[in-house]
Design a protein around this nucleic acid. Sequence first.
DNA 1: CCCTGATTCGC
DNA 2: GCGAATCAGG
Length: 169
Amino acid sequence: MAWTDDRVAKLSKLWADGLSASQIAAELGGVTRNAVIGKVHRLGLSGRVKSNTGGGAKPRRKPTTTARTASSTGTYQRARPSTGRTNKAKAAPDVDGEVLTKPVESLVAPESKKLTLLEITEFTCKWPHGDPTMPGFSFCGHKTKDDKPYCEFHNKLAFQPPSERRRRR
DNA sequence: CCCTGATTCGC
DNA sequence: GCGAATCAGG
């Protein structure tokens, strides 16, 4: 993806607007935040006095270039360490409309046995009832499901909503 | 661990 | 010129 005047203009605008590199990258599409930062530097508008969102500018230094120059076999392949989150370098048209309905099961909660902190064991559901700081606080107390900390019912409530990670706007 | 920008350097 | 890899800090 080439840096057309159009895209550069938008980049400049967004950057001046204080948006983070990743946000700009997502906005432009087809580029990674690295590309954005690289371009910003090349354009010479890196050192912004603007309030930095997160990381600020720090003294940089480079120890050895050996790490990235590892081409022992001759075929130097740039591999991304899986330690990083998946990159969305390939376009990202924000498509909305997906409405996932998560009724969280229409089950009825079982009556609580109201166990106190001293009464619970590895086999009793530890789903809390009430405010832990208040006197009357208790736990569900039903027998747990497998090695889970909760009973079958509360277990469903506990590990459920894989809410889609959304980029902050 | 998530994020941020900064830098280096092979292409 | 471009941007992935890497770094360094919050």
